[in-house]
């Protein structure tokens, strides 16, 4: 008898917990299914739009690759998307239809704006930008995105150098060619660092590579690519290097790159001129350094060194400003010796 009573009690408690609207287990399970379906749908759209922008042909296989899902599952997904009027199959080709195009553009815009937000307005570590943006891109409404863009000063490029598309219009093609395809000893500039797949992207940013950096390939082999970027040498496997897009830099000689100097290397007694700030210096930090006078053409010299060796105080524009070593490593300079030469 008491056993039945217990079971009945359990049912009374468990039933609402199971079917309670919005908070019950069932509702949560359905919500999570709907969420993951939405994520897959939007990720697929994103992939197709990027392919179209870069004159590549999206296929079932390439979508499955981008989503890291089985082909059967992806086929069902695409069929569902077609039924909803997002994509079309014609002549055996996968194409975006107008609503699909709009949605894909929105998701990419959301992603890139969120990354810009993280980069410029928060102290979130660079390695986390992509992951956080990958989640936010599915959550933000077009209104929120417009407000965010406005608050950020309507940026035109995200921290990886990619164009942030307008709410309407086309996605610009990603400029440049893969780093692996460039000639040896030809200075080029990084225009884009591909953020998919994430593992490769994390490795590239961990090496300190950023869009806007000047690069020169030193050695190429099927196993590895050795190149010079931002004052030091890097080695990458070709699969990694090909996620970096570069474009030619005509007015530079390789020697200019190798001889790049940074403020952190300035010795006491030397005088130097500021050439510019590294692209890795962003947001509030970049603006502050500019406002303090670290603009191209400014003459700098070491004034004081802290007893522990860091920070160092520099004379700049008639004032004395202390910078930490990492910051000084972001200011490109030319010492007098080189100016004379």
């Amino acid at each position: 008898m008491s056993g039945w009573l217990f079971l009945a009690g359990l049912a009374v408690v468990a039933f609402p917990a199971l079917v309670w609207p919005r908070r019950g287990l069932l509702a949560r399970w359905r919500a999570s299914l709907a969420w993951s379906a939405r994520v897959h749908r939007e990720d697929a759209l994103k992939h197709i739009l990027k392919c179209e922008a870069n004159q590549e042909v999206p296929t079932l296989i390439s979508v499955a690759g981008a989503l890291q899902k089985g082909q059967r599952q992806v086929a069902a997904l695409l069929a569902d998307m077609e039924a909803h009027g997002l994509v079309s199959f014609s002549d055996g080709r996968l194409r975006l239809r107008e609503p699909g195009h709009e949605l894909a553009l929105h998701v990419i815009r959301a992603h890139r704006l969120w990354e810009s937000y993280l980069a410029d307005q928060t102290g979130v570590a660079e390695a986390e930008w992509h992951r956080q943006a990958d989640r936010q891109e599915h959550l933000l409404s077009p209104q929120q995105i417009s407000a965010l863009a406005a608050a950020l000063g309507n940026p035109t490029r995200d921290p990886h150098g990619d164009a942030i598309p307008d709410a309407t219009g086309e996605l610009p093609a990603e400029p440049g060619q893969p780093l692996g395809a460039t000639e040896i000893n030809t200075p080029v500039m990084i225009t884009h660092i591909e953020d998919e797949p994430e593992a490769i992207y994390a490795q590239l940013t961990a090496q300190g590579l950023r869009a806007g950096m000047k690069v020169c390939v030193l050695e190429k082999s099927p196993e590895r690519i050795r190149f010079w970027a931002d004052g030091r040498e890097h080695v990458l496997a070709p699969i990694f290097a090909n996620n970096i897009a570069v474009s030619a830099l005509r007015e530079f000689r390789p020697a200019d790159l190798f001889e790049e100097e940074y403020l952190a290397g300035l010795q006491r007694g030397q005088v130097a001129k500021v050439i510019g700030l590294s692209p890795a210096c962003r947001g509030a930090e970049r603006r502050r350094l500019l406002d303090l006078g670290f603009v191209p053409g400014t003459s700098v010299e070491v004034d004081l060194v802290s007893p522990t060796g860091d920070p160092t105080a520099y004379r700049v524009r008639g004032t004395v400003v202390a910078l930490r070593r990492e910051q000084a490593g972001l200011v490109r300079i030319a010492t007098e010796r080189r100016i004379a030469a």
Binding site: E285, L292, L304, P311, A313
Partner: peptide
């Protein structure tokens, strides 16, 4: 907790 807050360093020696 504070990982996400903006951080810039500047120190002027007057």
């Amino acid at each position: 907790v504070l990982r996400g807050e903006v951080s810039t360093f500047s120190l002027e020696l007057p």
